[in-house]
Design a protein around this nucleic acid. Sequence first.
RNA 1: GGCCCUGUCGUCUAGUCUGGCCUAGGACACCGGAUUUUCAUUCCGGUAACACGGGUUCAAAUCCCGUCGGGGCUACCA
Length: 431
Amino acid sequence: MTVKVRMAPSPTGNLHIGTARTALFNWLYARKTGGQFIMRIEDTDLERSKPEFEADIIDGFEWLGIDWDNEHLYRQTERTDLYRAKLRQLLDEGKAFEKHYSSEEKAAMVREGRNPRDSIIVLKEPDEGTIGFDDTIRGHIEVDARRDVGLVSLAKDLDTPLYNFAVVVDDIDMAITDVIRGEDHISNTPKQLLIYRALGAPPPRFAHLPLILGPDRSKLSKRHGATSVSEYRKDYLPEAMVDFMAHLGHTYPQDIMTRDELIAGFDLAKVHKSGAIFDRAKLEWTNAQYLKMMPSNSFKELIGHPELPDEAVPLMTERLERLSDVGNFSYLWKDPSYDASLLTWKNDEPSRTLKALSDVALLADRAALTQDDLDLLAADHFDGQKGSVYWPLRIALSGLKNSAGPVEIASIIGPERTRERITSAITKLRT
RNA sequence: GGCCCUGUCGUCUAGUCUGGCCUAGGACACCGGAUUUUCAUUCCGGUAACACGGGUUCAAAUCCCGUCGGGGCUACCA
């Protein structure tokens, strides 16, 4: 039987890192096995579901390069006929019934700030016994059907199905073979198994992924900082994001791997059982690796400076971890502003700085600046102190204490702007 | 509280099923060094872990039992 998996996000928030990682594992599994990957929006919670969240989720998956095989996105709100029919069937067969609330129970709902209602459709409880399943990742899991599972709520009424029920009906209808989801769903599984049983359908295989954790080892959430994929887009490359997430809870032979390698090496047997902390430092390192590998044109396009020469690219990428820091290299396309006092190296006299800059200006008038010429200048007139020559030039060209080499910068911005910036530095020094 | 999942360096992990090759390997981070006009890159080197206690065995990170720790779930959310 060919594999068919699904991702079922609910549009009650932006695309969460944890959701993205679950989707990635499903996707990797489908691509590896030559199966299908289905995307289904679980919007049964009418009050919290929002179109803008759905848009953010779809957008995020596209950015990550996680594509699905169903042409039309499934939405549970568009499938209520199916749920109603199945609900009727269960009711008719006596496998489910309408539970009416007492006035005390309704009063309790009001106290808890919920909307009170008269009744709810629930599954008939099993008489006794255990209910279990073989988790692909964790092995056999079994609980007491009566004591531990509790009442299984199916729907608020015929037209408003609840999560556990809608999921099962859909997974049966779509012939899902493997349900790969977060560990937080383990306790839902017995409930869903009971629903499969009531509906007379064989359950799929289940695989529960370890959770992505915050630094304190609790489930990654807002209080740990940015949790939505959209917040990472300004800083990280999608390839880096995918590579990093694929390594959280899965063993791969290397840190940096292409998407095809990630697919080829994916194996549910290599998925771990315990949670993994989302380590920002490792993500940044991963991103830096991808930045260095990026083709020059793509990089220039990405940062919005296609006019830059190719040699400017490695100068930036070997110093960049977060994309949003690209502004640190604005001196490559914009004259810097800085304080004149910065121009003088260590304990040099300002007059020495002035002489250095003047001598370099003479050099720059004749030809493009080279390391050899500057070294020679330092050797002949500055006691071999390269800093006396290079430092003022660096500041003049970049305005920064830490920058790429002055000669490299000069080559990138060209002789004209180099001369202008040196002249401007000399002027600053004199006033 | 109850039920369930889980436990190797600070972090991601190899090794655990099939005990010996493990004086526990790699990567990130961190620290030190080399290169050097600054930063960075690169290259070398270093600190650092089998949660604990029993058992089984010639031999245990690996098998068994217990303890402790961490997490998830406990909705008329998903």
